[in-house]
Each structure stands twice: as C-alpha cells, then as structure tokens.
C-alpha cells in the first residue's frame, strides 16, 4: 500500500486495516476494535460518563464549589434544608454540603487511585511469579495470599488502621494491603492457563530469562482481566474507605470525605435527612459508575470473548 492510497482511505478503514503498515497503526487498530465493542454497550458509556464527571469535578473543585468546604457560617447557616443558596443544604457546622461533596470527589479519587496503584501491581507480581515458578515459590506465595484472604476485608483494614493510626493515608494503605490477594489469585489462574502454551515455550527456546518471560509475555496477558477486576472493585474500595471514615478511622475532620460526612450526619438523620443523604447519593452514583464501567470493560477486553 502506498502513502497516497492510505490518504484516500477513510480513517475507519485505516484503523480496521488487515495489513497495518506500522507499529502505531497496529496498536491503534486494536484499541479501536476494543473501543467499538465497549461503546456498543450503552450502560458502559453511562458508567464512563459518571467517572469522567467525577474527574472533572475533582479537577475543577475550586471553580465548581461556591463555598469553602471546611469553614462554615455557624451563626446563620446551621442545618439549612436544600435551597437556592445551598443546593444540598448545610450541615451542623454551617458548611455548604454541595461544596463539601465537590471537594470530597478529590479524596474519593485519591483513595481509589492510590489503592489501585498500590494493590494491583503487587497482586499482579505475586500471582504471575507464583503461577510461573510453581513448586515451593508458588506454595509459599499462595499460602500468604490465603492468610490475607481468610480475614474479612473491612475487619483486616480496621486492624491495620488501628495499628497505624487513623488518617486517610493509613486508610489507603490498609485498604491496599487487604485488597491485593484477589488480584494475585486472578493473575495466578491466568498465568497457569498460558504457562504451558507453545508460545511461551517458544520464548523459552529463545533463551529468555524467566524474569523476561513473566514481565513481557505473561503479564500483558493478565492485565486485561486485572483491569476489569480492579474497576469492579473500585466501588468496594470507595465503600470500605467510606466505612473507615464512618467509623472515624479514615479521613479526619474537617476533611470533606464522603464516608465521614455520612457519619456526622447520622445524628440528625430523621430531622435533617439531607446531611447524610447527599454524600450517600454521591457514593452510590460513583460506585455505580465504576461497576458499569467495569462491566463494559469486561465485554471489551476479556480475551476469552472474540478473537483477541
């Protein structure tokens, strides 16, 4: 195919070409196929929109929030119901709940991203190494994983936070420590299915080191199922963080963290329902968004479906 030919083709045909002419085209074509499969799912798009909205809100919190999230008007604005001045009402310290939720998006994102960044690579590494090495390495790594899995997640996280001291950083750490074992299990299962395949044998026969095989040939095959699982777990992570916040072990006042906001609203839940309802609804919507996104990603990325 000549350059002028390529120019006359539509962008779509270029992406779907059976004979890509460059590394970039091959990669983009692949991404495009995954995107088409993803975008065919309406609910997944809704989920993605929710997550994009969360990102935008977190990024532009300074612009979007009309009031300070931490300093309230104790004199005039305590526990006001939702209205024109305060869209979601105010809490017991006279702070605007809408502003607090907008700033709280940052903390939610902070928790979710940090947990994913810490837990997913640990799980991936432990799982692929255990699966590929087999024998004693496998037994030891998987028994450690089993020990972590044997405790309920929230209880173990509680124990860690109690030991490390309350605070949002320690909550993140505790959640990360308790959420890697399922990822290790998935990565190991995935590794076991490919480790004896001919294409891995072929790389062994080129003299590749085990390190290289795990890193460059096995991990890429595990990543899509891991991304799916992490996305589906995001909702759980948000809820655990909120749970820790609710118990007073996560974010400390006056941080506008959604779980802590529900905890403080609990006292007036019958008379001033909006104080707890607004952050609750925010948690609900964002969790739903991550779940829908994860479902869509499963359809788009799962290697077991389609010819990928």
């Amino acid at each position: 195919m000549t350059a002028s030919d390529a120019g006359s083709l539509s962008r779509r045909e270029w992406l779907l070409s059976d004979r890509p002419a460059s590394r970039l085209q091959a990669r983009l074509g692949r991404a495009y196929v995954a995107w088409r499969r993803f975008s065919a799912n309406r609910l997944a798009l809704v989920g993605m929109l929710i997550i994009i909205a969360l990102l935008v809100v977190a990024a532009f919190a300074d612009v979007l929030a009309p009031y300070s999230p931490t300093v309230g008007d104790l004199k005039n604005a305590r526990l006001l119901p939702p209205g024109a001045a305060h869209w979601f009402g105010t809490d017991d310290l006279g702070r605007d709940i809408y502003s607090r939720i907008v700033y709280g998006a940052r903390w939610t994102l902070y928790v979710v991203v940090l947990v994913a960044v810490i837990a997913a690579p640990i799980g991936l590494l432990v799982g692929t190494v255990a699966g590929y090495a087999g024998g004693w390495t496998d037994a030891i790594l998987m028994r450690i994983t089993d020990i972590f899995l044997a405790f309920p997640k929230l209880v173990l996280a509680l124990a860690f936070v109690a030991a490390l001291g309350p605070g949002i950083e320690n909550a993140v750490l505790a959640i990360a420590i308790t959420s890697w074992p399922p990822y290790a299990r998935i990565a190991r299962a995935e590794t076991l299915t490919v480790r004896n395949s001919d294409y891995i044998k072929a790389v062994q026969l080129m003299g590749a080191s085990p390190f290289r095989i795990v890193l460059r040939h096995i991990m890429p095959l595990c990543i899509s199922s891991l991304i799916i699982r992490v996305t589906l777990d995001m909702a759980g992570i948000i809820l655990t963080a909120a749970g820790l916040g609710f118990l007073g072990l996560g974010a400390q006042p006056p941080l506008p963290e959604w779980g802590a906001m529900i905890a403080s609203g609990r006292r007036f839940i019958l008379d001033q329902w909006w104080v707890a309802a607004a952050p609750g609804a925010a948690i609900l919507i964002v969790s739903l968004g991550f779940n829908l996104l994860g479902d869509g990603l499963r359809d788009a990325l799962d290697p077991r479906s389609g010819d990928q």
Binding site: P20, R23, A26, S197, Y199, A202, V203, L205, M206, G207
Partner: peptide
Amino acid sequence: VQMVFQDPYGSLHPRQTVDRLLQEPLAIH
C-alpha cells in the same frame, strides 16, 4: 538449535504483532 512447533495456532503469542515476535529473539541475544 531452534524449534518449529506443531500447532501454528498455539505457537504465536496472541497479543504480539509479527514484528514484536521477531524482535524478541534479537532483543534477548
């Protein structure tokens, strides 16, 4: 010594282009 496997459907990595497949032995050595 190199080997060619029986099943061409199983001996090529499903996530790698031909280019990547051929580059790998060169990179290793």
